[in-house]
Design a protein around this nucleic acid. Structure first.
Length: 208
DNA sequence: GTACCGATGTTCT
DNA sequence: GAACATCGGTACC
């Protein structure tokens, strides 16, 4: 069943966990494919020093943190990488979930074409095991800022109640600038899933 | 398997 | 002009 607004209208830490195992449905060139979310990170403004919206910093880029839940905030990083975030809770709470890894479930050859991979020998587990790769699989770019996952046909989320898994957590990746917030255990991933990113975890997390 | 390194586009100073 | 919520390649074990 398709996930509706209520699903996203929760605290960002809850949403980060609840999104694990859910299935993204994507339509490109009249073809559908599906991919499972296997890794997420929570960015919880305004007090989270790792978040782009820390201290209520609202700019042309970051204004998409203040949206109704279930909408996209997209930004580019290190060149041609587009990272996808989903807004949580409500339009007064600048909180969003970063999608850090996805597991393609079908149409693998089509996804390889989309990824523009030269070597067709690429492993399936390397297609979506990172936030930039996930954005590339889903063909996300800056024009997707404000995109509503609850109301569009070409990209949305569905449930998968039969899929059972355990959740693990760690500190978030590449946010060394975030002072004490770099120790928060706000990265969540599916235990033993081979599509989780190979990120190096620089610190142990500290319990709240 | 790990380790470095350059390329890349946008944002903000 | 620097910083950046990264990636793919090459080099070495």
């Amino acid at each position: 069943m398709r996930l509706n607004r209520d699903f996203f209208s929760v605290d960002v830490l809850t949403l980060s966990k609840n999104l694990l195992g859910k299935i993204l449905v994507r339509k490109i060139n009249n073809k559908y494919f599906r991919a499972r979310i296997v890794e997420t990170e929570a960015y919880k403004g305004p007090y989270d020093k790792a978040a782009h919206c820390y201290n209520n910093k609202k700019t042309e880029r970051t204004k998409y943190f203040w949206q109704s839940p279930g909408k996209l905030y997209v930004y580019s990083i290190y060149g041609n990488n587009y990272l996808m975030n989903i807004s949580a809770k409500d339009e007064n709470s600048p909180e969003a979930v970063l999608i850090r890894a996805i597991e393609p479930l079908d149409n693998f050859e089509f996804i390889k074409e989309i990824r523009n991979v030269k070597e067709k020998k690429i492993k399936l587990t390397d297609l979506g095991n990172g936030p930039g790769k996930a954005g590339a699989c889903l063909q996300i770019n800056l024009s997707y800022n404000g995109f509503d996952l609850c109301n569009e046909k070409d990209l949305f989320l569905i449930d998968d109640d039969n899929y059972k898994f355990d959740i693990e957590r760690s500190v978030r990746i590449n946010i060394d600038y975030a002072e004490e917030y770099r120790f928060k255990p706000w990265r969540f991933f599916i235990k033993n899933n081979t599509n989780v990113s190979k990120a190096k975890i620089p610190y142990q997390f500290i319990d709240d």
